[in-house]
Simulated scan of single mutants.
Amino acid sequence: MKKLSIIILLASTFLLQACVHKLVTVPVKVAYKTTKGVVKGTVAVTKAIIPGGDEDEDDGKKNKK
Rank of each mutant, 00 (worst) to 15 (best):
I50Y: 09
I50D: 07
D54N: 09
V24H: 11
K47M: 02
P51W: 01
G41V: 03
P51R: 04
I50F: 14
T46F: 10
I6T: 11
L9Y: 08
K29V: 05
G37M: 01
K29D: 10
V24I: 15
K47A: 00
M1Y: 08
T13R: 05
A18E: 07
T25L: 06
A31T: 06
I7N: 09
V45W: 13
H21M: 08
A48M: 06
S5H: 15
D59K: 15
Y32A: 13
K2G: 15
V26F: 10
V45Y: 12
V38G: 00
D58N: 07
K22L: 02
Q17M: 13
T35F: 11
G41F: 03
L16S: 14
T42Q: 09
G52E: 04
Y32R: 13
F14T: 07
T46W: 04
K65N: 12
D58A: 13
D54R: 04
L4N: 09
K62R: 13
G52M: 01
G52S: 02
A11S: 08
K65S: 08
V24T: 03
V43N: 01
G41K: 03
V26M: 08
K64F: 14
I7T: 10
P27E: 05
V24L: 11
T25K: 07
P51T: 06
T13G: 06
T46K: 02
V39E: 11
K29C: 02
K22E: 14
S5I: 13
A11L: 10
K47N: 09
K47Q: 05
T34M: 07
I6V: 14
L9A: 15
I6A: 08
P27D: 05
T25S: 10
K36P: 06
L15Y: 02
V39R: 03
A18Q: 08
K65I: 15
K64Y: 13
E55Q: 14
L15R: 06
G52A: 02
S5E: 12
P27F: 08
H21S: 11
I49L: 12
E55I: 15
G60H: 03
T13M: 10
K64I: 14
I49F: 09
A18Y: 00
K47C: 02
V26S: 07
G37A: 03
M1F: 13
K64H: 14
D58F: 13
S5N: 11
F14C: 10
T35Y: 04
T42H: 05
V30N: 06
P51D: 06
L9T: 13
T46Q: 07
